[in-house]
Amino acid sequence: MELIKRLAKPVSNIPKKKRKQHHAMTYFLLSFFALIALLPLYYLVITSMKDLNEASTMATMWPQSFALFDNIRFVLNYPDYNVVRMFINTMIVFVLKAVGTGLTCSLAAYGFAMYKFPFKNTIFFILLSAMMIPGELLGIPIFEFMVNTGLKEIAYIPLWIGAWFATDIFMIFLFRQFFQTIPKSLIEAARMDGYSELQIFFKIAIPLNKPVFVTVIILYFIGTYNDLYGPALYITQKSDWLMANSISIFENMYRSGSSSYLVPWNYVSVASLIALMPEVLLFSFMQKQFMETAAGVGIKG
């Protein structure tokens, strides 16, 4: 390997002209895909500026009318669209889920990382393989339980209760990886100083592993914000709507019985732009962590 490196260092025997061609090709491909990647956002912004007539009947590359402010006013004043309420609701669910998972999964992972227990590794392996089970299969009895006990409509219980029982096995796995790197000598020293096990956990293990908690926060924000399955299944009352419900309000505005109906794309676009604002903000403030988290765990399909 050392030899290869030494060999490789000084030489670069491609003629300059050829290398330039190479770069031109790279830039061409890069720009082409950049255009494709920008297309949805571009048309979203353009459509949000059009007036109702143009947006719902014509395909225009550039808006012929300018009604952005009217559209925003219309959307914000639309009776069913209580965006502040929907956002707060979403945040409530997010906080309950993130705190629950952060606390219980880190506790559970610490136990798996630090203490002996009969068949501990077998148990952990069983937990990991359960990640393969599709949510569809697990969801039926939980739905049945929530309906039978009447918990379905109370305080979003079906959406967050699992998070308080360390059911996010992937998170247990992630926390465990990090806890295993804590030097044993550090923990022994803390024990000598008279720290109890829980004190060691809260005062040493957790502060040493803050990055994992950032991961939990980012993952759960995206996960909760994007989730459509939970709301589609459990939320029926308008006052309980989450951000995930906010766009279909306008999509179905003029929907009657028949299969073809007018879709007011300008309002839909304004609502979509409002809906993607929080993720844009999170993304721009935490771009590095955001991308690392996303790459590390492969979230969202």
Partner: peptide
């Protein structure tokens, strides 16, 4: 790199509406 990441920040519940608009035979780009 940032540009390529843009489609990702559209929340998945909004993806449908955004692309329906784009692909609509009458009003889409």
């Amino acid at each position: 790199r940032t540009i390529y990441f843009i489609p990702f920040i559209i929340p998945s519940f909004a993806v449908g509406a955004v692309y329906k608009n784009l692909f609509n035979p009458n009003t889409g780009l």
